[in-house]
């Protein structure tokens, strides 16, 4: 029995349209994880700071812990599950692997989605551009050095392809 605080949310996730009835207070990150089972998008700080929940909304990186599922209704969402192919990583994913841009990996899905945005906005970023671009993503293991190296390597690979 739907309550007055439920909403019907219809959106496209990784190219597939889906519809669910959820409480209005449902955040996009919980919608993705709990309604759709897409647990690659992580909840880190839950306070709009760490960026572990970063997804693309209509092609632009956003923090899915700070978007209501209802706000995403009618929009296209891309999660970490939607950017590579089975057996063939996205160039940013490949660069994180090749450059060892992670240790525990918790922040990595958000990092990858944020780096995709940095490169989309600027195909040839400097070290400083990457560091500024990652202001909204926190990693507590790596000290960022290899994450920045991965971003630069990914940008170089994507310029060549």
């Amino acid at each position: 029995m739907p309550s007055a605080t439920d909403v019907s949310v219809e959106l496209t996730v990784n190219g597939r349209s889906c519809r669910r009835e959820v409480p209005a207070r449902t955040l996009l990150v919980h919608f993705l994880r709990e309604q759709l089972g897409l647990t690659g998008t992580h909840v880190g700080c839950d306070t709009t700071q760490c960026g572990a929940c970063t997804v693309a909304m209509d092609g632009v990186a956003v923090k899915s812990c700070t978007v209501l599922a209802a706000q995403a209704g009618g929009h296209e969402i891309t999660t970490i599950e939607g950017i590579g192919d089975e057996g063939k990583l996205h160039p940013v994913q490949h660069a994180f692997w090749a450059e060892h841009g992670l240790q525990c990996g918790y922040c990595t899905p958000g990092m990858v989605m944020a780096v995709r945005q940095i490169i989309a906005d600027n195909p040839d970023p400097t070290d400083a551009d990457v560091r500024r671009g990652l202001a909204g993503n926190i990693c507590r293991c790596t000290g960022y050095q290899n994450i920045v190296a991965a971003a630069l390597a990914a940008a170089a690979a994507m310029r060549e392809s």
Partner: peptide, 12 residues
């Protein structure tokens, strides 16, 4: 705008 919040927050 260059130093305001972060790229994800600026998008919304």
């Amino acid at each position: 705008l260059a130093v305001l919040a972060d790229q994800q927050v600026r998008a919304r």
